[in-house]
Design a binder for these strands. Sequence first.
DNA 1: AAGAATGTTATGTA
DNA 2: CTACATAACATTCT
Length: 263
Amino acid sequence: MPEGHTVHRIALDHSKVLRGKRIAVSSPQRRFAADAALVDGVRLLGIEAYGKHLFYSWANGLVGHVHLGLFGKFRVHRGTAPIDAPTVRMRLAVPKATIDLTGPTDCAIGTAEDRDRIVQRLGPDPLREDADPQRAFESIARRVAPIGQLLLEQKVMSGVGNVYRAEALFANGMHPNRPGRAITPEAFAGLWTTVVTMLRQGVVDDRIITLDRDEYELPSGRTRRGETTYVYHRDLCLRCGTPILTVDLGGRPCYYCPVCQPD
DNA sequence: AAGAATGTTATGTA
DNA sequence: CTACATAACATTCT
């Protein structure tokens, strides 16, 4: 274990807070969950997500903060953990299972104030009951920046990500380059509803599938990237067959169909 | 085996 | 203070 990489022992159910990030299961069993847990002898009170930030509240008042970033991953091991785990940043363990966290952008122990500071700088999270969509609309409506860029900005709204931004814009027939200030309240309402629906579906599926299930059968067996979306990472639009284009927005490619999403 | 990738923030410039 | 671009960081897979 490298210096400074403290290992914490806790247990939890992550399935509701990972937003399309899948837990890699190292054994045939699908998922691990636990009701109660200990953190170095301290009870885990709960896990909460704001956007893609995960917070672990412990009975000693401290709050763990994890952000998976691009590479962060939880691996579930049934039974005892592998001994050799030099890159593990957090270990979640109970007698029958171990979940190891590797590669996160953030993994730290802090206070409730540290958590509040992070939450304060985030826009409304479409997955949360307490989200106020009006806040997001107001920050969009006074910007000229393209909506495709704004959807990735955490202070506009939090937790959307590159797949859902492309798929939500597609579902609303909205070109990613449309300026924020050109988004009407009605158009925003549709977009917000789509994002909420898609993210909730992701929680149910524990992966990202944006296909309308009345229209498309779920892909069976192993699916590759670009098989569970309409435009994201596709060569051709699933709906109309037009070649998919990308535009760089927020430093990342935004996939869109020029026919289904006219200017 | 270089390069891409389901993310975000800090920092510099205008 | 706002807006925008770029760099930085994490790791695995093809």
